[in-house]
């Protein structure tokens, strides 16, 4: 034992270092899958992006769909609502964003938003409140016809999820 310690203090033995290094690589290769198994699995990922048909949603009508377990508002806005949203000066907004930035070009009537209030996650009620948009029943946040926060404790606008138009009546969310 004594000779061993002297030996290793003077010169790190290559064999010991190599064994330790290979062992460490092996341990890391075992640990990662044990953590990675908690990531979303293949069946969850398969539903990470969905296609949704807008056909049949009339002007002024709103539907709620489910995406990644979250409710999503899809609203076909009326001309009046779009006009109202565009008329608001950015300086009046708590979380400034233009109406254009919250819709897709050429499809300004469609508003797609995650339906959880940015305050604490309740689902706001549509076509209500002072701003003709959404009003959250839990803590009184009020959103306008572009889903922007206008009054109440919510800090930011309702979140627009990543989505794109595949054609005029079909969107892909996620």
């Amino acid at each position: 034992m004594a000779t061993q310690t002297q030996h290793s203090t003077t010169r790190r033995d290559f064999l010991f270092v190599a064994t330790g290094a290979v062992g460490a690589v092996g341990a890391a290769a075992v640990v990662w899958p044990l953590i990675n198994q908690m990531n979303p699995d293949a069946s969850t990922l398969a539903l990470a992006s969905i296609e949704f048909s807008l056909a049949g949603i009339e002007e002024g009508q709103s539907v709620t769909i489910l995406w990644r377990g979250l409710p999503v508002f899809v609203r076909n806005r009326t001309a009046k609502e779009i006009e109202e949203a565009k008329a608001v000066p950015l300086s009046e907004l708590k979380d400034p964003a233009t109406d254009e930035s919250r819709t897709k070009e050429g499809h300004e009537n469609w508003l797609v938003m995650i339906a959880n209030c940015t305050h604490l996650g309740c689902i706001p009620v549509g076509e209500s409140g002072e701003f003709d948009g959404w009003a959250c029943p839990c803590h009184g946040s009020q959103f306008d016809t572009a889903g922007r926060i206008r009054k109440g404790p919510a800090p930011t606008n309702l979140v627009v999820p990543p989505y794109e138009f595949i054609n005029d009546t079909l969107i892909k969310i996620g």
Binding site: P33, N36, Q37, A42, S43
Partner: peptide
């Protein structure tokens, strides 16, 4: 079977 098929590394675990 879900573990074997869908969970990351599930078949091995």
């Amino acid at each position: 079977e879900h573990i074997r098929r869908d969970v990351n590394g599930g078949r091995i675990i």
